[in-house]
């Protein structure tokens, strides 16, 4: 009986495993082989093994480390900002959302738009010559930074990313906050606990490590910098 059930579980997993082996296993193997080979467009189908030379080229290239540093800073800055703003919104908007659940819809809107579209929209809005933001900054203050130049691109990109993905952090924090039972909230309020204490002190006590897995594990994956 146990053996049959084990076979059943394995059969249920099989389609997914086969799909992953085909569409991810093969590319991983090819990638590894190519990374150790001399490959050009002429030799794409017959690469020649050459050792770790490609890795050495990448690791000694300043551009690689510059790009990695940019990504690391970008990941940390946006993840911290998204979590901080998402948590703040979840705590302070929770009572309002409980009364007017339709508020959730506009808050989640940025999540629904393609990042490529959002990027193009901001490119238009912040464009030095035709964008409305630089135009009004010139009108009101007589000057406007060039949002898209090399100096300011990091912060422009960070703000745009934060604006688009904060709703997801908000949703995760909101559901963690809402998972606290009403009786527990009322008891904590009588004891003088604020919303932050409710979220971080009482929630784990109610739900144990499970909440960490269900709520914060996906958060770590979506915001790898956290």
């Amino acid at each position: 009986m146990i053996a049959t059930k084990n076979l059943d579980w394995k059969l249920l997993n099989t389609p997914l495993v086969l799909f992953l082996l085909l569409f991810l296993g093969f590319p991983v193997i090819v990638n590894l082989y190519y990374s150790l080979s001399e490959v050009s467009f002429e030799t794409l189908r017959a690469p020649e093994l050459e050792g770790v030379g490609n890795y050495l080229i990448v690791l000694t290239d300043g551009a690689f480390w510059q790009a990695s540093w940019f990504s690391l800073r970008f990941g940390i800055v946006t993840a911290v900002a998204e979590c901080a703003i998402g948590l703040g919104l979840a705590i302070f908007l929770a009572p309002l959302i409980e009364k007017h659940s339709a508020m959730m819809a506009p808050l989640m809107l940025p999540l629904m738009v393609a990042p490529a579209m959002v990027g193009l929209m901001y490119r238009l809005v912040l464009h030095e010559f035709v964008g409305p933001v630089p135009f009004y900054l010139y009108e009101w203050f007589g000057n406007s930074p060039s949002f898209l130049n090399a100096t300011n691109a990091f912060w422009t990109l960070s703000v745009v990313e934060t604006l688009q993905w904060t709703p997801f952090a908000f949703l995760l924090f909101y559901m963690a906050y809402e998972a606290i039972p009403d009786e527990v909230r009322q008891a904590a309020a009588i004891d003088g606990a604020g919303p932050l204490q409710l979220l971080f002190l009482i929630e784990p006590a109610v739900d144990g490590a499970d909440v960490d897995y269900r709520v914060f594990y996906p958060l770590h994956r979506w915001f790898p910098g956290v």
Binding site: S101, M104, A105, M108, L109, L111, M112, V113, A114, L171, L172, Y174, M175, A176, E178, A179, D207, V211, R214, V215
Partner: peptide, 20 residues
């Protein structure tokens, strides 16, 4: 996608909250 999100926002938040 925006219309889908607007129409189904209750489903998304409700189901995710229930999961937690």
């Amino acid at each position: 996608p925006m219309l889908l999100g607007l129409i189904m926002y209750k489903q998304i938040s409700g189901s995710m909250t229930a999961g937690a």
